[in-house]
Design a protein around this nucleic acid. Structure first.
Lengths: 181, 181
DNA sequence: GCCAAATGTTTCAGACCTAAAATATATTGA
DNA sequence: TCAATATATTTTAGGTCTGAAACATTTGGC
């Protein structure tokens, strides 16, 4: 019942191209994925600016805070948004100045800064989030529900593949005796 | 063996939410797409820095130039990469300083600046591109060939949907009597 | 208790990116 | 012709983002 890895590889090689070590298919897939993400991002960016005079990073940060009733630390936000701590600090600075976010040291651990939306911040976010949701739906409106579902599922598989590849590299790098692959 | 489409639809509707006008599914799809793109981008960014001491925007720009034998104008590059003209100018400035790119006004139209890779630029890019292709393949290695193909196809459909939504908006906007909504 | 290591955040230098204004050149039409 | 308009690029101001260093606080071992 075992299919040899070489067989799968060969099949892929022959289908895509004759050259060994060729991975043009994955490259094309990545470029297409990137194009989609960029198109959506810049369209949302434009609409947020035009309709709410705000920016995508600010919206994203507020979206994270809105999901948590008890507030989030700078580190948590930075992990969720997959950006650096320093970046969160900077974006928060703007939101603080506009009175949309509150920042205070945690009672138990004064290293930690807890971020929450202010009442004004919650109001502002609520208005934006509704429109944002509509925009996204509008952008994907050309897909059938079955297609969206399948795309969602395949991207889940992709995410798993990415984490696997990234962890393999990070985990196997500092340890010399660790076998790769 | 056939599951009726309506069954899938109803299943999704009931599963997701009862509220009309709800578009959480598309939102989740977008967030997952964004996660995948961000994971890939930052992994590639890290490897380009560690292995070649360069950046992703520089690599992307060189990749565009490499594809064209006759050179590209600033505007063409900016359209392909979906970034602003000013940004291209800035990234090119760095590549010029490193001798990887050449810039000269077009003979017929002196407004236009034609960009080409220098010999050194082509050499440098070639080395990076090979590794880059491997990295991408590695990141997608957890997907079966059939899955990659289907994902590619669905992202094609997505791209079409995006262009449709974006054009619909841009075409219908500047003409009206000035209702802001 | 006290010091070293660990953890969380900010600061810093530098690159990227955008939209809008400014500049430079080309084209068009009275 | 020549001014108005269109097109291509650069400049500018300001926000975003990174990785690394600096700073602050906590924790763990002695």
């Amino acid at each position: 019942m075992e299919i040899p890895v070489t067989a799968i590889l060969l099949d892929r090689e022959t289908k895509a191209s004759e050259r060994p070590g060729d991975h043009k298919d994955e490259l094309r897939l990545w470029l297409r994925l990137l194009t989609c993400a960029t198109l959506i991002e810049s369209e949302i960016r434009t609409r947020l600016r035009e309709e709410f005079k705000t920016t995508l990073p600010r919206f994203d940060l507020m979206a994270q805070l809105e999901k948590s009733t008890t507030g989030m630390t700078v580190g948590e936000v930075s992990q969720r948004l997959m950006v650096s701590n320093g970046n969160v600090t900077a974006v928060v600075a703007g939101l603080l100045a506009d009175g949309l976010v509150d920042k205070r040291p945690a009672a138990q651990d004064r290293r930690v800064q807890v971020l929450t939306l202010t009442a004004q911040g919650r109001r502002a976010f609520k208005a934006m989030a509704e429109r944002h949701e509509d925009w996204i739906a509008e952008l994907f409106a050309g897909l059938e529900p079955a297609e969206t579902a399948q795309l969602f599922q395949l991207l889940g598989r992709t995410k798993a593949s990415l984490h696997q590849a990234i962890n393999r590299r990070q985990g196997g790098e500092p340890t010399p005796t660790g076998d790769q692959i």
